[in-house]
Design a protein around this nucleic acid. Structure first.
Length: 469
DNA sequence: CTGGGGAAGGGGCCC
DNA sequence: GGGGCCCCTTCCCCA
């Protein structure tokens, strides 16, 4: 038997027998496959709407939904477990009841199951994600995450390299300030979703699902839609009613870092870019607040989590599968999803999700509280070592290593760090930062610095909406 | 390319 | 509920 694959035609066929003999050919064409899958899904959806052959009754908060157990089985881990228990008896209709999400939410979920179209908006995405998590529909969770990410532009770390390259280009081209188009920077795509703009519909964004099965399922409907002629690939369309923000929080941090670097090189500007960042930050805070406002109604879930034999009240994160015992811990955890960083370091402008992280950062980076020589790693006492500054960073070095590296040859300005640091921390316009950055590898004589119990650390919990950059 | 070390981030839990 | 501590993992930089 010979198998021939024509990649170009995306066609595979199997030929049996010798030339001249009867050949059995099976051939597969992707268009036909997706066409057939879409057609079948459409048929099932029609049957559901007409309540034909429905063998599953789902009661959601008093509202009855009818569906096919095969479809639910194939779409949801929850239903897979539920239905597999009664797999032996397929004659009786299956009943399921939910009160942990609303009928509207289940309508969105069910429509997605039968059509591949997920009707997400900023108002329902949290609850849809929570319901999807409950129903163990990982693909829906993933799409909700992408929707939220794209809305908040909480970019993942995969974007770092691309962003930095953009930043480098923007900021190292001399007049980078005015040339920095927020749109160009904000166009970094979320890692698992592709966004494009439909020119026929301004102000809207289209979500391109990467799930091939989903694409196939949706293809039929797309082909049948009036817009299909404009499309080159099957897509799942989500029409967000909130505009994607221009900058994510990590992106803004990097912009700020680059901005500080530029300022330290004497290129100061605080006009359109700062305003754009301020606006974006304000929007991020607003979106986070909107998300928080919806949480109390959905995060409290009673049940078995992590195979805990004792059922207890735990709070489930609407963005992931993580559960915590305390609401306060959930609030803390949510910051890793919302991108909130309410604790800025006034010395270097880096922002943190927790006060303790800020404190740790400040003590490690700016106060040199570790009594270890940075070079030789030996213990350093106040007599055997000194604090050495490198830009905004401070280290301790033993006397021998200081002599080896030649740091002692650097000018010592007799700076009293204990008095200098609070002023530095209070500064917000970068002036102090500039002065500090110029004092590269200074050796200071202040030994009280390390033992000071953090009094130098001025902590401000900043309201993002009116923060000065 | 790889391994080590430091910094950052996140979870659990106690006060 | 907030603050803080401890522990672990991940990321990033550098040799």
């Amino acid at each position: 038997m010979a198998m021939v694959t024509e990649m170009g035609a995306n066609r595979t066929y199997l030929a049996a027998g010798e030339p001249g003999q009867l050949q059995v050919q099976r051939w597969h064409h992707s268009d036909i496959t997706t066409d057939h899958q879409g057609y079948m899904l459409k048929q099932l959806d029609d049957q559901r709407r007409q309540e034909l052959f429905c063998d599953c009754n789902v009661l959601v908060d008093g509202q009855l939904f009818k569906a096919h157990r095969n479809v639910l089985f194939g779409s949801s881990g929850y239903f897979r477990m539920l239905l597999s228990h009664g797999a032996g008896d397929n004659t009786e209709p299956v009943n399921a009841s939910f009160d942990v999400f609303s009928p509207d939410t289940f309508t969105v979920i069910l429509d997605f199951i039968y059509s591949g179209q997920l009707d997400l908006s900023s108002h329902n995405v949290i609850e849809v994600m929570s319901a999807a998590s409950y129903l163990q529909m990982n693909n829906v969770i993933s799409y909700c995450k992408d929707f939220i990410k794209s809305s908040l532009e909480i970019s993942a770390k995969e974007d770092d390299v691309r962003y930095l390259s953009l930043s480098e280009n923007s900021y190292t081209q001399g007049a980078g300030d005015d040339n920095t188009d927020p749109q160009s920077v904000g166009s970094v795509s979320p890692p698992s979703a592709l966004w494009t703009h439909d020119s026929s519909r301004p102000q809207s964004s289209r979500y391109l699902a990467k799930d091939p099965d989903l694409k196939a399922a949706v293809l039929k409907q797309e082909l049948g839609s009036p817009q299909s002629s404009q499309q080159h690939s099957p897509e799942v369309e989500i029409l967000p009613d909130i505009e994607p923000l221009q900058f994510s929080e990590p992106q803004m941090q990097r912009r700020r870092r680059w901005g500080a670097r530029r300022r330290s090189h004497g290129n100061r500007s605080s006009t359109n870019e700062d305003l754009a960042i301020q606006e974006a930050r304000s929007q991020t805070a607003q979106k986070a607040n909107e998300l928080y406002a919806t949480l109390p109604t959905i995060v409290g879930v009673m049940g078995l989590f992590n195979k805990d034999p004792n059922p207890s009240m735990r709070f489930k994160c609407p963005f992931c599968t993580h559960t915590v015992k305390r609401k306060a811990d959930l609030k803390r955890h949510l910051r890793c999803h919302t991108g909130e960083r309410p604790y800025p370091c006034q010395a270097c402008n880096k922002r943190f999700t927790r006060l303790e992280h800020l404190r740790s950062h400040f003590e490690t980076i700016h106060q040199a509280r570790k009594l270890v020589c940075r070079k030789c790693k030996r213990q350093v006492t106040e007599l055997s070592g000194r604090v050495v500054c490198d830009g905004s960073r401070s280290y301790r070095m033993c006397t021998e290593c200081i002599q080896e590296t030649g740091c002692e040859n650097l000018p010592m300005d007799g700076l009293d760090e204990a008095n200098e640091e609070p002023a530095l921390l209070l500064g917000v316009d970068g002036e102090e930062e500039d002065g500090h950055a110029q004092r590269s590898w200074l050796v200071t004589d202040n030994d009280d610095l390390a033992e000071d119990s953090g009094a130098d650390l001025i902590i401000q919990e900043v309201d993002d909406s009116d923060e000065q950059l």
